[in-house]
Amino acid sequence: MTGILGLAGITHFLRPETFDSIVPPRLGNPRFWTYASGVAELGCATMLAVPATRRLGGTASAALMVGVFPANIYTVKKHWHSPRGRAIALARLPLQVPLVWMSWNIAGGRAEASR
């Protein structure tokens, strides 16, 4: 999770236009949300990397994964009339489940026991 979130967070700053395009318009300035979610991902990755804050990082990561889910739903709606775009967007939806599950296991200390 640390690597996934760290890489995703960095990508928000290197290629912000990719993330801007999936911010639902009703949220306002897409670049603000792109950068804010990038900061949140980097913050979660940092907390996960530090043993003293790992469990808090797991909780924050699970909340973040749930919080960004509406962007994935918006992406499905946005690409609904494009068979390829729709297929890619729909395929992404279930990927959130294992990310939330892994984060929740870290929060509960279960990931540490399996190491």
Rank of each mutant, 00 (worst) to 15 (best):
D20S: 05
E112Q: 14
V50E: 06
T75F: 03
I10P: 08
T11Q: 11
A62N: 13
V23P: 06
T18W: 11
G28W: 11
P16Q: 04
N105S: 15
R86G: 14
S82V: 01
G3S: 05
H81M: 04
H12G: 10
A89K: 06
M102E: 07
F32H: 04
R84Q: 14
S21F: 07
A113D: 13
P25D: 06
G3M: 00
F32R: 05
L99R: 12
G108T: 03
F13S: 06
A107M: 04
G6W: 11
S114L: 14
R115T: 11
P94A: 10
H12K: 08
G57W: 08
I73A: 11
R55I: 00
L95G: 11
G43A: 13
A52Q: 07
R55K: 15
G67S: 09
R31G: 04
G9L: 10
L93Q: 12
T34F: 04
V50S: 09
G58I: 06
G28H: 06
W104D: 01
I4M: 01
A111W: 10
F19W: 09
G9Y: 06
I88E: 09
T53A: 07
Q96C: 13
I106L: 08
P16Y: 05
R15C: 04
T46V: 07
V100F: 07
I88K: 08
V39F: 09
V97T: 14
A62R: 14
